[in-house]
Design a binder for these strands. Structure first.
Length: 553
RNA sequence: GGCCCGGUCGUCUAGUGGUUAGGAUGCCGCCCUUUCAAGGCGGAGGUCGCGGGUUCAAGUCCCGUCCGGGCUACCA
């Protein structure tokens, strides 16, 4: 049966409706909220939370709300709000309402809501109905209580010391004495508290194992328990989606909704993302900050696609999906109960796939934007204890500096170099090292490569022939890309390079071109790996090639 | 200690009583090829945490157990 109740300015379905499947009546608009607290830059776990809500709201044509939960003054870090917005914008996570967007349920920052008297007004209702009570315990008393419970192997927590059942006279006296005071929620005793989680189904607690949570702190600020639930109700939130670490607080929140006489939203406790060791994601597991992935050269669409697939699956074999496809497929039934592990290797593969799928023009602008943003300087320049990683980072850094220089010079040439390496990179940062040789007058030579291919008997003759071919009459005018720094009038086409190499091989009576191709590649690039030789030669152009060949003679 | 959640290849996962337990990544091999990639093909990798049931039949249902994780703040 579909019945409705009006709460605030939003329609909320009744308990019976929501408990059944966690799905909503088609007329009911989904409203979810992403509510970070500005205590640190968003990490991948936070952002995954935001992403799920983004897709869920999008799937149902609902509303995603951004709310800042800054009720903990001691942990507030200035500037983090900007990083939150930056992260969200980078990934293209949209909000139809909230902080920085506006809407009818503001303000959307909890400290401002506190100033507006919202929590004071709401707590008054609970005090009057007897669902909340004032407690004057000192922190020393509370510590003592816990110690006692510990020793006596009792459940630890505030189950109502003297204050839960204090007489009005006691309370009055404590207030007169100006004792520090908190307001706690009165959890009913000898009862069973049941919630219906959309992923796990029914979860129940003996109410005697649920302690009385603080609702208002002694500094007058609301706790998360209070502020988040009050705001969720006032903002008409239909689904409380959050990490599974909140399950143990859920009975408190359920009781709070009941105490107000409010309809309970659907609880959706999403699986979290863990590190390789199965523990909460932390610095030990590598990069946790969302924006680190931008600095490291990952594409937002790859990160989104990858992260969406941890803890959620569309069913079947689909993996590579566009944003629209994910939104289309995203629903509660695809959510997994078990936590997932962040696998960087798979992210790298997926990022490479998205880089390869980029049109040439977007590829060039993505790389240029990445290089110009310059976040990689700080990222790859970070100190590390791992000597191998340090070496890798330094190489990446050097390559990127070279690319940056190249990009600031002949942009078209740089763009062509980037295009030639598209298939060989996993991240945007990889383009630095991959394309460096295009911009270096004398690219560093790999020792092994030199030992193997520059010592062949025909090397000298090969290079001399190449030089005379390049300095000889132009077979066809400007090269493939019309570029040749020193001799703008003369380039070489890809086919001409191929013809020369093959011709030389045939002269030697070779079947396979390896003995010709490899020495030339090493001479020109210093490496044994890279793009197709003929393409690379054409791009380099005669004068660059001649210069590089001459130094070897 | 108490309460709660979880458990399918290393990792992400498909799977809702009958499948040779499928896909992806990573790893190995082959093909393609001027190298490296990419791509194509193939392989190794799972006693579905374990033990009991229920059933003709269990990864799928029930019970127990083990292991892992979370919470146990005037933090979120």
């Amino acid at each position: 049966m579909w019945t409705w109740s009006r709460t605030g300015s939003s329609l909320v379905p009744t308990e019976a409706v929501r408990n059944a499947t966690g799905t909503l009546h088609p007329f009911m608009s989904v409203r979810v909220r992403y509510a970070p607290s500005p205590t640190g830059s968003p990490h991948v776990g936070n952002i995954r939370d935001a992403l799920f809500k983004h897709y869920f709201a999008k799937h149902h044509g609902g509303v995603n709300i951004l709310r800042i939960e800054d009720t903990d003054r001691t942990r507030y870090i200035p500037g983090v709000e900007e990083e939150i917005v930056d992260s969200l914008n980078w990934l293209g996570i949209e909000f139809q309402e909230g902080f920085g967007v506006g809407g009818d349920h503001g303000p959307y920052r909890q400290s401002e809501r506190k100033e507006a008297g919202i929590y004071a007004r709401e707590i008054q209702k609970l005090l009057e109905s007897g669902h909340a009570y004032k407690a004057f315990d000192t922190s020393e008393e509370l510590a003592e209580m816990r110690e006692f419970q510990q020793i006596n192997k009792q459940p630890i927590g505030y189950y109502g010391g003297v204050w839960r059942d204090a007489t009005p006279a006691m309370v009055e006296q404590a207030e007169r004495e100006g004792k520090p005071m908190v307001i706690r929620l009165r959890i009913p005793r000898n009862d069973t508290i049941v919630i219906h989680d959309a992923i796990r189904g029914r979860i129940e607690w003996d109410s005697n194992t649920v302690d009385d949570p603080v609702l208002i702190k002694s500094d007058g600020m609301p706790t998360y328990h209070f502020a988040a639930m009050v705001d969720d109700h006032l903002m008409g939130i239909t689904h409380i989606m959050r990490g599974e670490e909140w399950i143990s607080s859920a009975p408190k929140h359920a009781v709070l909704f009941d105490a107000f006489g409010w309809e309970r939203p659907v609880f959706v406790h999403c699986p979290v993302i863990n590190g390789k060791d199965g523990k909460k994601l932390s610095k030990r597991h590598g990069d946790t900050k969302c924006l680190d992935y931008r600095a490291a050269g990952y594409l937002p669409r790859a990160l989104k696609n990858f992260i969406a697939l941890i803890g959620w699956a569309p069913g079947g074999d689909r993996e590579l999906m566009t944003d629209a496809e994910i939104a289309e497929a995203f629903d509660l039934d695809g959510l997994q109960p078990a936590p997932g592990v962040f696998d960087l290797e798979k992210l790298r593969w997926m990022n490479g796939w998205y880089i390869r799928s980029l049109e040439l023009e977007s590829l060039r602008s993505e790389v240029a934007a990445f290089v110009e943003r310059g976040e990689w300087r700080e990222y790859f320049g970070r100190p590390t204890d791992d000597p191998e990683l340090l070496k890798k980072n330094q190489a990446t850094l050097a390559g990127l500096e070279t690319l940056a220089l190249g990009l600031s010079g002949d942009r078209e040439y740089a763009g062509a170099a980037i295009a030639l390496e598209q298939e060989r990179v996993a991240t945007l940062a990889d383009f630095g090292e991959a394309t460096a040789f295009f911009f270096q007058d004398e690219p560093p030579m790999d020792e092994k490569a030199v030992a193997k291919w520059l010592t062949v008997p025909h090397a000298r003759d090969l290079f001399e022939s190449l030089i005379s071919f390049l300095e000889g009459p132009a077979p066809s005018g400007p090269g493939a890309d019309g570029h040749d720094g020193a001799c703008p009038s003369r380039g070489v086409k890809v086919e001409e390079c191929e013809a020369f190499i093959r011709g030389y091989g045939e002269k030697m009576g070779l079947e396979k071109m390896g003995p010709v191709v490899h020495p030339v590649r090493v001479a020109l690039t210093g490496k044994t790996v890279g793009p197709g030789l003929f393409e690379l030669m054409s791009l380099l152009g005669p004068s660059r090639m001649v210069r590089r060949l001459r130094r070897l003679l």
